[in-house]
């Protein structure tokens, strides 16, 4: 019997099958943990945050539209939790803004770059070591694209920004990464 999709499982939970929710938690626990680690950097309260994400997902699961993908919906909840967690941290509070100018203006439609496998692996390696030096604005799309393997449209759904802005943030994030690498190599 083929494995049920996330969306099918979510529908069962919506109907009141509490046990099916365990399947969703098991499927996404590692992903959410990795996302938290890369976005928040081993926070003391990571376990509490993960629990909070899944509890919020359970409480609000009837707002999930099963005709759409479950993954961006859950990542959106995680994104909101992480942003709230960052706001509580003194160090990151100033890097979080309610409004970013890049969502105001139109950008040329950013096509998804077809990074070849080598280039993608290299970016992943650099990214893993330099994430902390990037602000949340550029860090998050880079994490979602290169480390969580989401496409532009899914990232746009998670961050609630236009698809073209996702492309712009990824380009600028990569440029910042290159500058960081050059600086480290120069030292």
């Amino acid at each position: 019997m083929p494995e049920r999709t996330d969306e099918e499982v979510a529908v069962e939970v919506q109907k009141g099958d509490m046990e099916s929710f365990r399947i969703l938690v098991e499927r996404y626990e590692a992903k959410m943990s990795r996302y938290a680690k890369r976005f928040l950097f081993a926070p003391d309260d990571a376990d509490d945050l993960l629990q909070e994400i899944f509890i919020k997902a359970y409480v609000n699961i009837r707002s999930f539209d099963a005709s759409r993908r479950f993954s961006p919906w859950l990542y959106r909840i995680a994104h909101n939790e992480f942003i709230n967690a960052l706001k509580k941290k003194k160090k990151d509070r100033n890097n979080i803004s309610l409004f970013y100018v890049d969502v105001l203006f139109p950008h040329p439609v950013a096509r998804e770059t077809a990074d070849d496998a080598t280039s993608r692996r290299e970016i992943r390696e650099v990214l893993d070591g330099s994430l902390e030096k990037l602000g949340p604005k550029y860090r998050e799309p880079l994490v979602l694209y290169y480390l969580e393997d989401m496409n532009y449209k899914e990232i746009a759904e998670v961050l609630h920004i236009p698809v073209s802005t996702v492309g712009v943030r990824l380009q600028r994030g990569k440029t910042l990464l290159r500058q960081l690498v050059k600086r480290v190599e120069g030292d």
Partner: peptide, 10 residues
Amino acid sequence: PLGEQVLATI
């Protein structure tokens, strides 16, 4: 496991 913790809370 997290799944159990969440289910227990629910």
